[in-house]
């Protein structure tokens, strides 16, 4: 292992990690918003839109991100829709992630007991107040592990941004590999960089899960 080589290229990887993280988090944020919207459209049974949400979720969950990205980046411009690489990255990740987030929110909502909804209704809350104050907070608490799993999954998926010619971690490594020939060091740093990015997310997920468990969330009913 050539430590000098590794040391001298840390800034390159830091720059790549910053690209990965920035666009990854951007996509994750948009995916959460889109997922929540889709989940609510289905929950409130909004005509037409709930069907559209369902169709979108199936489409996004059953196709690879790589193919989605090629379609956005190399296919769409040929029919006159030109998007920058960065836009493709965020749109692609949002498109893929929104479906997974929607499913996480949905199973969270389903885990809230029906009687909770009825108790809210009996207080004369509107449907929106009911979901805002009673159902969603409980659903979110149950959905936290699934949501964090999605975040990790999506950040890993950003490794495909390299096909968009973005200088993310993957592309930084690939460029170094093809130019320098120090394959082992390059790949070692690549793995280490992803570990450094994702370990904190994973620790955060554990922490959140434990705190919620202590707070007595979840659907177990004590009599």
């Amino acid at each position: 292992m050539d430590w000098e080589f590794i040391g001298s290229h840390i800034p390159d990887y830091a720059a790549g990690a910053w690209v990965t993280l920035r666009f990854g988090l951007c996509g994750v944020g948009c995916a959460m918003a889109l997922g929540l919207i889709c989940c609510l459209l289905r929950y409130f049974r909004v005509p037409v839109l709930k069907g559209a949400a369902r169709g979108y979720i199936e489409l996004a969950r059953n196709t690879p991100l790589l193919v989605q990205l090629f379609f956005l980046y190399a296919g769409l411009p040929r029919v006159g829709i030109r998007l920058s690489a960065e836009a493709c990255a965020v749109i692609g990740l949002t498109f893929l992630g929104g479906a997974y987030m929607a499913e996480a929110f949905r199973s969270g909502l389903e885990s809230v007991e029906k009687s909770q909804r009825e108790a809210g209704e009996c207080l004369g809350l509107t449907r929106w107040q009911n979901i805002r104050y009673i159902l969603l907070p409980q659903a979110l608490a149950t959905a936290v592990p699934a949501l964090f799993a999605n975040v990790i999954f999506l950040i890993k998926e950003t490794s495909m941004f390299s096909v968009l010619a973005m200088m993310d971690l993957m592309n930084v490594a690939d460029t170094l590999r093809t130019s320098g020939g120090r394959t082992v060091e390059v790949l070692f740093m690549l793995a280490a960089a992803y570990l450094a990015l994702l370990l904190p997310v994973s620790l955060l997920a554990n922490l959140a899960e434990r705190r919620l468990r202590y707070a007595g969330f979840g659907n177990q009913r004590s009599v």
Binding site: I152, K156, E157, T158, S159, M160, M170, A173, D174, R177, T183, V184, L187, L190, A191, Y194, L195, L198, L199, S202
Partner: peptide, 14 residues
């Protein structure tokens, strides 16, 4: 933790 693409590179090139 490792993106599958990274693992692929590790094995194929590494």
């Amino acid at each position: 933790f490792m993106p599958q693409l990274v693992l692929l590179y590790l094995v194929y090139f590494g």
